[in-house]
Amino acid sequence: MSGRIERAFARARKARRAAFIPYITAGDPDPGRTVALARALERGGADILELGVPFTDPIADGATNQRAAERALAAGTTLTTVLETVRSFRLTSDLPLVLFTYFNPVHAYGLARFSVDAASAGVDGVLFTDVPVDEAGPAHEALRRVGIELVLLVAPTSTRARVKAVRRLAGSFVYFVARSGVTGARTTLEEGLEEQVRLVRKLTKTRVAVGFGVSTPDQVTRIAQFADGVVVGSVLVERIAELGDAPELPGAIEALARSFALATRRK
């Protein structure tokens, strides 16, 4: 398992916080700015960074992340350029990094070659949005060989049998989808989330990060009381869309990240 991800969760726990896990789409608004944005998120208090690999057909994403993927692709982002971005970020940072990707770009790159290149670039975890756990064996094995962990999604609708299958392949955490559907900011949280998270933790015997729809510091604080990590994506992506090329973009992202990072305290 990746030492960096484990250590990040341990550090947050010790500080009586949930881990803060921001998400942005790599290459949005263009590949040249991603490293600066990643650094801004780190300064803003990220514990783990989730970096989306843009895809032409992002079926698990809502409109905000779809637009981000379109901008990134239009700017020439590919899986190869994302790995280059990770490599140059790693020169100056030890922040754990999880790639959030659809399977086809990895399939085209070659699973084995991707695993090796991702590990050497400094990727710690990979989440495939469209690979169900019963099809995830080969990816898990290829990644395990190079020391990268597979991050699996668990949904409120997942059956017990499926959650148990997740347990066999999961690394230091699983990603719990706070609400069925696609990514995107929402104003309300699903009822019963706390019990669901506890159940998933019990069944998978690993940490649970909650994401999909978390959009305000207030929601983060509520989730932080019972989850091991909180993923915040669409609000950050929306801000990137608003500011685009503006020079104040990294500063604004850092400030926004900080407001979420501060909200991860446990009471």
């Binding site: 895809f55 032409t56 057909d57 079926i59 692709l73 590919t78 899986l79 190869t80 659809y102 399977f103 086809n104 770009p105 990895v106 399939h107 085209a108 790159y109 469209d130």
Partner: peptide
Amino acid sequence: GEPGVLHGTRSYVLQDQDGLV
């Protein structure tokens, strides 16, 4: 096309060398 995964199926898919559809 080349073998690829789109819409939850592995089949022949028209795509570029980066796996973009």
